[in-house]
Design a protein around this nucleic acid. Structure first.
Lengths: 337, 337
DNA sequence: TTGAAAGCGCTAACAT
DNA sequence: ATGTTAGCGCTTTCAA
């Protein structure tokens, strides 16, 4: 087998096959016609040597890459992880490799570091998860010379974008709660990516349309436990009969706070979440929520990026409306409340 | 500013600074001494041009890379996502970039594809998540010529490895349940990575040591809902007073199945999970479980990899014992059961 | 300490 | 259809 220590190169293959280096390259890339006879020789040599072309050399000379970067503020929270999974699946199907770049905060220094890390690579393109401020900041420092797609968040000028229409879904959810007979709906917000948060604005719109009072927004962190204290506060207010939480984990924390305070869900207070977390259905009571297809968001995002990479500027925006999922954590208010 | 379309190269910097290309390279890598005067000139030129060296060119010539690959069977399930997060954080701190490679099944074809994708890249090293069969299969096809670290799973010969001692933790948890007065403990297993699963073997060891009966193992899938049917079955058997589930999500499904069948947790049946999922504490009742530090596992894994990359074969194994977390889903059995 | 020369492994451009 | 030549942007000899 004649294995040397180092990996075989394209010239080893060419030599073994008795052809020139470019001919091997042609077989590899399929860019030009090669006679069946030589192709077979080359393929045999490739197999014999277990040759794999060096991505680095390829990228250097062709200036094209089969790698994309994903810039994200977090990789393990449900929405992020699912979105990244969707991107990876779509990318893999097209032969692309995915590189992860985490931006932990919106500090200029941290954002610059991440952007520099991305820009050192020769990339086919970048997908930015714009769920939170770090992502937003990174997007704006990325520059124009690279295909970029933004995922989620508010509409961007000049950047292709795939979104979930959270505002419409939140509006529908709030209307559903109002339709159950609640006089108004309280709202617990997750940390927003900007001043305007789709979930919050949809909620507000529904209340305004219905002529209902718009209670002060309460804030939670990304930690589900932060919902407990909020739940207790809400439970202490007899006016509160329905609560819409920015995500399912917070809703679970809020429900715990409410039950710890001695009130019941949904008999005393209806609670709804957002996202349709895998555990939402198993919760007691099963959580009314909005089914967000994060993996699909990721897939749509990669498809938009692929179009940009290929220069097909055909579509630049993809929006999908998440569906309301009615379960048992919401009900009509009791009489007299 | 004289911006051209293309990115500035090292020769643009050299020209602007009035030095040779290798001198710029020396400033970049810090590999050799450069006089303060020239260094300053070079740094000014780099800043002026917003120059970033091409990773591809660097890798090609130096045969060294600052990129690692993570091979995983899944990226969005809790344990995986957290582990990847831990790897990424440790890698980023050392200036490494992380590339994700998903292996969806243990099919030879799929594993080969993934391994080929990894081997095309010039990598500093690879971290393989050995939580499941695809990871195990990939590890064994990776070859010897690249620093590799395995995470979790059974002990590997010849490969540095970081693990969580699940068997010891499962044993402790089972002993705790037995100590509460249960005659035996039933076990619901998540899909194992091999024939021998640490959680299952620790459970079995504790029962055997205590002279307790070893009930047949029940299997669940990774889908929490698969636990519901198992929970109903368990609830139908009056002998069952304690159940140890392979992870918290399954435990939540099992608990739902048990309560749907009209029995209570923990009054009728104690249920324990594994992992300390962020929602375990919020569950009703809060779940007794084992705190698995997946992010720490990832961090330790990267550290082991770094040692291998640097040729410091000092440590090749890192084990940590997850801690038992006692909450309210487990209690002493009722009298007469 | 610095520069000149060589070359990493591949693809692109241009021959034929 | 195939080979020859050139060169991607760097780091690494090697001399000076």
């Amino acid at each position: 087998m004649g294995r040397t220590g180092r990996n075989p190169t394209i010239s080893d293959v060419a030599e073994l096959a008795g052809v020139s280096v470019p001919t091997v390259s042609r077989v590899l890339t399929g860019a030009a016609k090669v006679s069946p006879a030589k192709r077979e020789l080359v393929e045999a040599a490739i197999a014999e040597l277990d040759f794999r072309p060096s991505a680095a050399a390829r990228v250097l000379v062709s200036r094209r890459s089969q790698t994309i970067a994903v810039i994200a503020g977090n990789t393990s929270r449900y929405g992020y992880a699912e979105t990244i999974r969707g991107i990876e699946i779509a990318a893999r199907a097209e032969g692309y490799t995915v590189m992860i770049t985490v931006v932990e905060s919106a500090d200029a220094e941290e954002v610059d570091r991440a952007v520099a890390a991305v820009r050192m690579q020769t990339l086919a393109g970048v997908v930015v998860l714009k769920f939170d401020p770090p992502g937003v900041a990174a997007l704006h420092k990325l520059g124009e010379d690279l295909p970029v797609v933004a995922l989620s968040g508010t509409r961007e000028a000049g950047v292709p974008q795939a979104v979930l229409d959270e505002a419409a879904a939140a509006e529908e959810l709030t209307e559903y709660l109002l339709g159950l007979g609640h006089r108004t709906v309280h709202h617990v917000r997750v940390p927003p990516s900007r001043r305007v948060d789709g979930r919050t604005s949809g909620w507000k719109r529904a209340l305004t349309k219905a002529g209902a009072a718009v209670p002060a927004v309460r804030d939670a962190t990304w930690d589900p436990k932060s919902g407990i204290a909020v739940g207790r506060e809400l439970a202490a207010d007899p006016e509160v009969t329905a609560v819409f939480c920015g995500n399912d984990e917070i809703a679970m924390g809020v429900m715990r706070g409410i039950t710890e305070a001695g009130r019941r869900v949904p008999e005393d207070i209806s609670v709804a979440g957002f996202d349709d977390h895998p555990l939402a259905e198993l919760w007691s009571p099963p959580l009314t929520t909005v089914d967000q297809d994060f993996a699909g968001l990721g897939t749509r995002g990669f498809q938009l990026l692929k179009l940009a990479i290929d220069g097909t500027a055909a579509r630049r925006y993809s929006s999908e409306r998440p569906a309301l999922v009615r379960r048992e954590s919401t009900a009509a208010p009791r009489q007299g409340s």
